[in-house]
């Protein structure tokens, strides 16, 4: 009888790094990436700011909704970013301006990635006639200029945050269908999927237990990127007057830029605040998404096919 002792270890392998789960591996890689840490810091800063800004503004002597700063006032010690065309304090308005934006886009992205990847994985796995038909529909949707569609729906139904969440979530899920379907195709022919099918697992089990963990990497990175695009989309809506409606008790960076647009050439400071805040958030998301892709071993330059 041949004695089989596979117990001989590779003595020198770093025992601690050997037992890592793939998730820990990813966290480990992320921690080594400076740009990823910066990106994450910026994102966390913005989210914390959005959560706490009403209380911060409360404590400050300036009020974002009263016209006390003077119309188009230049920055001063009292009003750090100056005043807008109605004489409101730009600094406090900027602090508050990301709240609706973040609320809508975070939930919108989650919704988009959720339904998009569910449908994508299902189509990628099942294939067949349904796949053909739905993918042509997806193509058709992708061909329509999305901004027009968004304007139409938001214009008809209203500018409530939950409506925007659902609308953006729906439209941004469409490209996610493509991406997750393509990522699924890479795995569907693998033998572990075949093994699960041969074992007689339910289709839904195969999708969630076998396929999802493998395409999750792509979906995470894709989700982070979608988020930054959705931010831009929402800002555009606001700019056009369909995001956060003007004159209400809410402020928004897109709206602020739009309102200060006419005098931008003469007195640009009223737009500086929202522009800096918005771009820092988007840069932060991009840095983080890139670092995440690297940490997961995906190369975004080769990219997921959309």
């Amino acid at each position: 009888m041949a004695a089989i002792t596979p117990e001989i270890e590779n003595v020198q392998e770093e025992a601690s790094t050997q037992r890592k789960t793939p998730f820990m591996e990813m966290v480990d890689n992320l921690r080594r990436s400076t740009s990823g840490k910066i990106g994450l810091f910026i994102i966390v800063f913005h989210i914390l700011l959005a959560l706490t800004s009403p209380f911060i503004v409360e404590l400050m002597p300036q009020d974002p909704f009263t016209r006390e700063a003077g119309r188009n006032a230049a920055p001063s010690l009292q009003h750090w970013f100056g005043g807008d065309e109605q004489g409101r304090d730009v600094f406090t308005r900027t602090l508050l301006g990301g709240r609706t934006l973040l609320l809508v886009t975070i939930f919108g992205t989650t919704l988009a990635m959720g339904w998009g990847s569910f449908v994508g994985i299902m189509l990628g796995f099942l294939g067949g006639r349904a796949d053909e038909i739905i993918m042509r529909l997806v193509d058709a949707f992708l061909a329509i200029p999305w901004l027009l569609f968004l304007l139409l729906i938001v214009g008809i139904v209203g500018t409530e945050p939950w409506i925007q969440m659902l609308t953006l979530g729906f439209f941004y899920g469409i490209p996610a269908v493509r991406v997750s379907r393509a990522a699924t195709h890479d795995y569907v022919t693998r033998e572990f999927v075949l093994a699960a099918r041969a074992r007689g697992e339910k289709k839904i089990t195969v999708m969630f237990r076998e396929l999802l963990p493998n395409v999750l990497d792509v979906l995470l990175v894709e989700g982070a990127m979608r988020w930054s695009w959705m931010l831009l989309a929402f800002i555009s809506l606001s700019f056009l007057g369909f995001g956060v409606p003007p004159g209400g008790e809410r402020t928004d960076w897109g709206l602020m830029i739009s309102q200060s647009r006419r005098i931008m050439a003469l007195q640009p400071w009223a737009t500086f605040g929202p522009i800096i805040f918005l771009s820092s958030l988007i840069i932060g998301i991009n840095l983080f998404a890139d670092a995440l892709a690297k940490a997961l071993g995906l190369d975004r330059s080769q990219g997921a096919p959309v």
Binding site: P22, F192, G200, N214
Partner: peptide, 20 residues
Amino acid sequence: RKRIQMIFQNPDASLNPRHS
């Protein structure tokens, strides 16, 4: 299904890399 099982050629491919 239980009584007939299958083992595949390449264990790299037949085990899900994301499962312990």
